[in-house]
């Protein structure tokens, strides 16, 4: 049942992605409107799937890499849908939807394993920790995409090339604003996620901070974003430099999400999360 809904959501997201890509080439508004609606429908299906999973597992469905990728993709689409309400930036969808769709496809290719959720995971702190961290990640994906778009557009304007990108991409000011706002809204989520993580660690493992590689890398990620936000607000960084920095910060974030979990971490790793014992 759950898998079916997820598959359905994936199909909708793929169709929407196709629509967004056609939109960016053809520049027909009605294509965009339909793609947007289909994406919204896909998002709703995905949400139903997540709620169902939550009820079955009793914990946010992020314990396996498979489910974590799907959840990440859900937050990216969610962040985009909210962002659309404020900025109405159609072309942003053409960049974000493929990213979200990719993550969902990777998620489906990973074989599912039967897991039993450890009782210790059934904690409201863990749910908040995971929910906020992932929301932050989703919003930062937006920051990242806006930064890439900014660099492309900036390159075209500086080099005085007026090709198809120049016409289709929005103004530098708009992209910088998206970058700015998504950074401002994403950062509190990341921060709350880390704090609740520490609280949960104290509650479940008996100490706030265990120098686990994932913890360390999360802190590094947080420091990157904190620096960027500080430079933006206090020093007045903007434009190209801010865009570069948010791309680097997102790379660190992705490494923390995947790299640290797969190869470095100890109790944060999916292997240990899936397994029965607690280290």
């Amino acid at each position: 049942m759950g898998i079916l809904i997820f598959r359905f959501a994936l199909i909708l997201v793929l169709i929407a992605t196709g629509g967004f890509l056609v939109y960016v080439i053809k520049q027909e508004k009605f294509i965009y409107r339909w793609a947007y609606r289909i994406l919204l429908a896909g998002f709703v299906c995905h949400t139903i799937f997540l709620i169902q999973q939550y009820y079955i597992l009793g914990v946010a469905p992020v314990i396996t890499l498979k489910s974590a990728l799907a959840f990440f993709s859900w937050t990216i689409i969610g962040a985009y849908l909210v962002c659309h309400l404020k900025f109405r930036l159609m072309v942003l969808g053409s960049f974000l939807a493929p990213l979200a769709a990719c993550l969902m496809i990777i998620s489906t290719t990973i074989p599912s394993v039967e897991i039993t959720v450890k009782p210790i995971f059934r904690s409201v702190w863990l749910t908040i920790h995971v929910g906020t961290i992932f929301t932050g990640n989703g919003i930062f994906a937006l920051t990242f995409i806006a930064a890439i778009m900014y660099l492309i557009q900036e390159h075209h304007i500086k080099k005085k090339k007026f090709g198809s990108f120049y016409i289709r991409l929005p103004s530098l000011q708009t992209l910088d604003m998206v970058n700015h706002y998504s950074l401002m809204y994403g950062f509190p989520f990341l921060t709350i996620g880390m704090i609740t993580g520490a609280i949960y660690a104290q509650y479940a493992l008996g100490s706030y901070w265990r120098w686990d590689p994932k913890e360390v890398w999360s802190l590094i990620t947080w420091l990157f974003y904190a620096t960027l936000l500080h430079e933006r607000l206090a020093v007045g960084w903007r434009g190209r430099r801010a865009a570069m920095m948010s791309i680097i910060a997102f790379m660190v974030l992705i490494f923390t999400f995947l790299g640290a979990s797969l190869w470095l971490s100890d109790y944060h790793s999916f292997r240990s999360l899936e397994s029965q014992s607690i280290p």
């Binding site: 557009q153 304007i157 120049y166 929005p170 103004s171 530098l172 000011q173 708009t174």
Partner: peptide
Amino acid sequence: ELAKKIFYE
């Protein structure tokens, strides 16, 4: 047009 690509409005 260029100004709009830089400043939006």
